[in-house]
Amino acid sequence: MHAPLDGLITALDLVDTGARTSEDIFTGPSQWMPHGRVFGGQVLAQSLVAATRTVADDRHVHSMHGYFLRPGDVDESITFAVDRIHDGRSFSTRRVQAYQTGLPILSMIASFQDDDEGLVHQIEMPGDMPDPESLPSTAEVLGHLDHSVAQHWANDRPFDMRHVPSPIYLKADGERTSHQAIWMKTLGPLPDDPDLHRAALAYASDYSIMEPVLRRHGLPWITPGLKVASLDHAMWWHRFGRVDEWVLYVQDSPAAQGGRGLSRGSIFNRDGLLLATVAQEGMVRIPSRR
């Protein structure tokens, strides 16, 4: 197994402390990041794992809404406190607070549902996308650069990500559009646990969701003084899909204003089935617009 993928599985394997007062308490590690702040997708996925541990096995997450409250410190472990808000006939609701050194860094509510029948429709996956095998990986784009962040993005992330039309790590080529897509999958196979795949999809959903905001204004990630931070994150799971197989993350940004940008994403499997929908607002600041 690839070391980054092993690190993802380890990060999502939370420890149940056994505490049972008004909340269920779990702990988990922080993955190293070159800028010293915990990756938002990591704490989202861990919070989802914590909530899932308190729900009946026949109920699965269908929605999650979280607010990032403080930057997490990669040198500190994270404590997850789960409040069992409600268990109904079909739905269960959980609130999760993620803490470091006694202070909350994320607050999230997630809803779970048992299998049910109902109306079915979905938007269509774009039909003009190149195959992922024809696109360069992040390792191929950045692996030659002698820089800690570039090397981390190229070699230390558990997901292979391939941009359509092109990545904006170093430059934002082409039209200044608020649309892009990314093929992504884990670097190797994952265990068959469906809840692990759901959590891993939440993890990866935070990687690139703010990029349509940057692409619209011709801003690559290396823009001097650029500051981007996730403020909130919402996600809806429509059907199960494996994340160790290629999925297409189609993204757009409808608006940016007041130092904030909003992005939306639709995640399809390779057969065109809509797996999940994502929305995130983030802080986006550059020196000339402070």
Rank of each mutant, 00 (worst) to 15 (best):
D116V: 15
A56V: 09
I267T: 00
V74R: 11
D146H: 06
Q46G: 03
F159W: 14
T101R: 15
D24N: 05
L44Q: 11
R239E: 15
R84K: 13
G258L: 11
F268D: 11
P212M: 08
I105A: 01
R289F: 13
V15K: 03
W236N: 02
W236E: 05
Q113I: 09
G261Y: 12
V278L: 02
R198W: 12
R53M: 14
D173A: 09
D193W: 08
R260W: 13
R264V: 06
V15A: 00
E133H: 10
L187T: 08
P126Q: 12
P136Q: 07
R289K: 15
R37D: 02
D83L: 06
T93K: 09
V250T: 03
S230Q: 05
D131K: 12
D87K: 03
V228E: 01
G36K: 08
L275Y: 03
A255D: 13
V49P: 10
A276N: 01
G265S: 04
G72R: 02
F26D: 10
Y207R: 10
A98Y: 11
G88N: 08
S107Q: 12
D160T: 07
I105Q: 04
L48H: 10
F112Y: 14
K227W: 10
L145Y: 07
M108Y: 00
W32S: 14
V141A: 06
Q100K: 01
M108D: 01
D87S: 07
L135H: 03
S92R: 06
R198A: 13
V82A: 01
G272S: 12
L135T: 03
M283W: 12
Y207A: 11
Y203Q: 10
D115W: 04
D114A: 10
L170M: 14
Y249D: 08
P132W: 12
S63H: 14
I9N: 03
D16H: 06
A181V: 05
G18Y: 09
V278K: 00
T177K: 04
P132Y: 08
G88V: 09
